[in-house]
Computed example of a mutant assay.
Amino acid sequence: MLTNCDNFRDMGGIKTHDGHVLKEKKIIRSGKLSNLNDDDVVFLEKYGLKHDVDFRSMSERKNEPDRIPASVRYHFAPVFPVDETRSGNDKWESRRNYYVDEQAAFKDMLDAYNDIVLQDCAKKAYREFFDVLLANDKDDESVLFHCSAGKDRTGMGAVYLLTVLGVDETVIRADYLASNKYLRGQQKKEEVRALQKGEIFAKNIFNLGSVSEHYLDCALGTMTREYGSIGEYLEKELKLSANEQEDLRKIYLK
């Protein structure tokens, strides 16, 4: 596995409700790839990585560009023009309400998850993600998709894909929440630093740096309210046809 990348995981082995299993070395999710060392880059090349889908904003990409093998095709698919998921916590230290309202960041994250569903740039990014997935139809070649922490923009990409593949909602939810386990070490470091500025600020930083069932429920609720269901959202807003969904199941399931 990678030594300098948070929240890196092959999604292979996840089971669908009808008994199929996601193939290994076909679809990978992770946090940012800017800190990879030479061994990490070699690992990805040997792993069969062919496509890197970057959901981050232009400024995130500029400040921390991906390190990937030369043979990998890079796809820039920003979900937001700027990072609405607040993965770069330093810039929020000047937010006064983060020191007096322990729900401030929680409310910001709910707004971000609403925007993940509703904003045209987000829909465009996830449609491009599916285009890359559909093109990855050769055996032993994989797609990696990521944002900064690999939990929100990446998390929703995984929710969409697993839904199309026919994975049970409880399993999808567990995969989404697993980011808290994979990011626990980083969260503890941020908590120690944040506590120096007070418990309320630390609570807000925790809410920025973790995933919550409330965040996922917010996105799913918005889809249901505005479009009928997540399935209808994928079909109507991401323009994912029934034939394309079947092709995805053929490519990624065994």
Rank of each mutant, 00 (worst) to 15 (best):
V132Q: 00
D111P: 07
R67L: 12
C121H: 11
P65A: 06
P65L: 04
S87N: 15
E60C: 01
V41I: 15
E141L: 05
C121Q: 12
S30H: 01
K138T: 09
F129M: 14
S94V: 14
F76Q: 12
Y47D: 04
F76D: 12
R9E: 05
E128Y: 07
N136E: 08
M109L: 10
W92C: 08
D6V: 11
F106V: 06
R95N: 14
A135T: 04
N7A: 01
Y113E: 03
S34D: 15
D54F: 00
F106I: 10
K50T: 14
K25V: 02
M109I: 13
E102R: 11
D6W: 06
K62L: 08
Y74N: 12
D10I: 00
F106E: 07
G88D: 15
A77D: 02
H17K: 15
Q119G: 03
G12M: 04
G19N: 07
N37A: 11
C121P: 10
P69H: 11
T16Y: 00
Q103K: 14
G19S: 06
V132S: 01
K26E: 03
R56Q: 01
Y113Q: 02
N7C: 02
K15R: 15
D18W: 08
C147S: 10
C147D: 07
G12V: 11
T85R: 03
P81T: 14
G13W: 01
S59N: 12
D120S: 13
D140C: 06
T16C: 08
N136T: 08
K107V: 13
D108R: 06
C147W: 03
S71G: 07
K25L: 05
V42Q: 13
V41M: 10
N97F: 06
L49S: 02
L118F: 03
E128R: 15
E93N: 09
V21C: 06
L33Q: 05
P78F: 00
D111K: 13
Q103L: 10
E102N: 08
V79S: 00
S94W: 07
N136V: 05
D111I: 10
G88E: 13
S87F: 06
R29K: 01
V100G: 14
K123N: 06
Y126F: 03
K123H: 09
W92G: 05
R73T: 14
E84K: 15
K62T: 15
M11V: 11
V72K: 02
V82N: 12
F130Q: 03
F129S: 09
P81M: 08
D40W: 04
T16D: 02
G31W: 01
S94A: 10
K32I: 09
K26V: 04
D111S: 14
N89L: 13
D101E: 03
K50Q: 15
L44A: 03
D120E: 11
V117M: 05
E141F: 07
V82I: 10
